[in-house]
Every structure is written in structure tokens, then in C-alpha cells.
């Protein structure tokens, strides 16, 4: 196995709210290799975005607080870096695209103005060289008339064009890791297809790792190499895409896959009863146990640890612990 590019170990983050302290991330661990696309799936409020923002140290402190854990990126612990050193990591080594490109772009500056800023700051290019560089980047995400586009304002572009500009901008300094937080949720299906294809191509060409946050299992199946499933601030399962869909191990993952409509024409969709718990007072033991149909007696007392059950397959569930690792399948 090759060297890990990003290695998050035991990361815990809390947010102080009026209701009390919410434990938004609880001992989260995951890792990424160069050139790999890792999908991070889970429902609203499960902590996917907080995890991505914590990697870039973008969570507001207070109310947020990173309690413990390490975020190792290229052998450096990002949580120990100075603010100055962190600034040279953001955009240069790790960059991030968000769901709504219109709120990430400044409406009063041209696209060129905003794109050049990054190239000049991180790559030290002059004005003309930066212009060249930006036009070349826009062409790589298949935007025609790149030169003309640099003179336009964000409101003159369509949603798909804006998101492509964001990708071009974030890739312009050649980052080793791209954090994509629901990059296609605000877009139409046909445009979503184009954007995902570009992300896939760029990851392959540059040997760049991508953390793709999404709630759409279809997007995961078609773009990712590996998947991490989160529930209420905890990573409950990590596996390769093929394994996750063929042999989902955690009851939550199984429910999530069964709840997707339209694969075959079935009469009733399987559902997960109940709703996501409140993170201020999460359930004791396994956070999923109140909704779990397969719970056993330890589930409400002991927190299950993420344990390996096969090649690149780990799960945090009491049902899977202590079973033989080889040749084992749920009956």
C-alpha cells in the first residue's frame, strides 16, 4: 500500500450552542491516497461538511472547537501549523469547492480578477503570465472562449459555468487534495454529469486526491473509488465502492442503500424508522442504536470501534466485531 496523503486520526469537534455542547464529530478517522476519490456520504447534519472544513481549519472558533485528533497531510499535522503556514496550504496544497458557486464568487469582481489573485499569490506569476495561466485552466474544464470569460462577472454565467470556473480556480495552483462539498447538488442532471466527469478526469491526470461530499448514492457509485459513510458525527463504515454496494455491513449503510428508489420496480421502499438524533445529547453507546433493527444488548452501552473486516473494509458495529475476518458474510 502506498503512502497516505491525508490521514485523519481520532478527530473530535464540538460546537457550543444555546442548547448545550453539540458533539459534531466523534473520533473520526479516515485516510486518502494520492489520485484516489473518496466519497463521504451521510444525511443532513451528520458532520460531513464540518469534517472537510476542519481539514482546512475553516471552522469558526468559537463556537467550534477541535478537541483532539491529528490531521496528517504530507507528514505534517495541520492542527499544529501556524496561521501563516496554514495560509500557504489552503489553495496551494488543499483546495475546496462548495455547493453554491454564486456565494463563493465575489459579485463585484470579474472572473479574471478573482482567478488571477490565486495564481499571483501562490505561484508568484506576473499579471500577463497569470492571465495566460487562468485562460489555460478554464480551457481545461472545457469552457469555450476562456479569454472573454475572464472579463465577465459571475452573474453573467450559468450555474454550470460558474461551478466549472470554481473548479478551474481551485485547480489552478495544482493542489494535491481537493475537497468538494456537494459540488453538483445545485445543478441539473445533465450539467451534473459534465462536472463529475471533469472532476474524475482531473483527478486521474494530476494524481490528485478528492474528498467528494455528497448525499447521492448514485454520484458515489459512478465517481468514487472508496466510500466513508457517516452517521451523526461518526464514521460507521469505510469500503471500496464495489464492496459497499455489494456487501454493506453496517445496518445504517444497508438502510441507506435500500431506501434508494427506482433501481428496480418495487412496490415499497425500505425505510429507516425514526429520525437523526440530536447531537447535543446523542444516544449512549452506538449512536445509531435507537433506529437500528438489528440491535443487540451491548449497543446502548458500548460505543463500537471502527474495526477492519476485510481488505479496505472497516465497520463500526457490534454485530460485525469478533466475527472471523475471512469468508464471512451476513446470512
Amino acid at each position: 500500500m502506498s503512502k497516505q496523503l491525508l490521514d485523519v486520526q481520532g478527530l473530535s469537534v464540538t460546537f457550543t450552542t444555546h442548547q448545550g455542547t453539540a458533539r459534531v464529530l466523534e473520533k473520526v478517522s479516515l485516510s486518502l491516497q494520492a489520485g484516489e476519490i473518496l466519497g463521504l456520504v451521510g444525511e443532513t447534519g451528520c458532520g460531513k461538511s464540518v469534517l472537510a472544513r476542519s481539514i482546512l481549519r475553516l471552522i469558526p472558533q468559537p463556537p467550534g472547537r477541535i478537541h483532539e485528533g491529528r490531521i496528517m497531510f504530507q507528514e505534517k499535522n495541520l492542527l499544529k501549523l501556524s496561521a501563516r503556514a496554514m495560509r500557504s496550504v489552503r489553495g496551494r496544497c488543499i483546495s475546496m469547492i462548495f455547493q453554491e458557486p454564486l456565494s463563493s464568487l465575489n459579485p463585484v469582481f470579474t472572473i479574471g480578477n478573482q482567478m488571477r489573485e490565486m495564481a499571483r499569490l501562490h505561484l508568484g506569476l506576473g499579471r500577463e503570465a497569470a492571465n495566460e495561466h487562468c485562460a489555460a485552466m478554464l480551457a481545461r474544464v472545457r469552457l469555450p472562449d476562456a479569454r472573454g470569460l475572464l472579463r465577465k462577472y459571475p452573474h453573467e454565467l450559468s450555474g454550470g459555468q460558474r461551478q466549472r470556473v470554481m473548479i478551474a480556480m481551485e485547480l489552478s495552483c495544482g493542489p494535491q487534495l481537493l475537497l468538494a462539498d456537494e459540488p453538483t447538488t445545485a445543478l441539473d442532471v445533465t450539467v451534473q454529469g459534465q462536472i463529475l466527469q471533469i472532476i474524475k478526469e482531473q483527478a486521474a491526470q494530476r494524481d490528485m486526491a478528492v474528498l467528494l461530499i455528497t448525499h447521492d448514492m448514485g454520484v458515489v457509485a459512478q465517481t468514487c473509488d472508496r466510500v466513508a459513510v457517516m452517521y451523526a458525527g461518526v464514521v460507521v463504515e469505510t469500503a471500496t465502492v464495489a464492496d459497499l454496494f455489494a456487501r454493506p455491513e453496517h445496518p445504517y449503510t444497508q438502510g441507506l442503500i435500500a431506501a434508494i428508489p427506482g433501481r428496480e420496480r418495487i412496490q415499497q421502499l425500505l425505510t429507516i424508522p425514526g429520525t437523526v438524533p440530536d447531537l447535543v445529547t446523542p444516544p449512549p453507546g452506538c449512536r445509531y442504536h435507537p433506529r437500528c433493527v438489528l440491535r443487540v444488548k451491548n449497543c446502548n452501552r458500548i460505543e463500537p470501534e471502527l474495526s477492519t473486516i476485510g481488505a479496505q473494509h472497516a465497520v463500526a458495529c457490534h454485530l460485525s466485531a469478533g466475527k472471523p475476518q475471512e469468508n464471512w458474510r451476513r446470512p
Binding site: 459534465q194 459512478q222 454496494f245
Partner: peptide, 11 residues
């Protein structure tokens, strides 16, 4: 996107 990794699509 089809939620099944066995069929790889060109999106």
C-alpha cells in the same frame, strides 16, 4: 448516476 457501481457510465 445509477446507484450501482457495476455499471460504469460516461456521465
Amino acid at each position: 448516476p445509477i446507484p450501482d457501481p457495476r455499471t460504469r457510465q460516461n456521465l
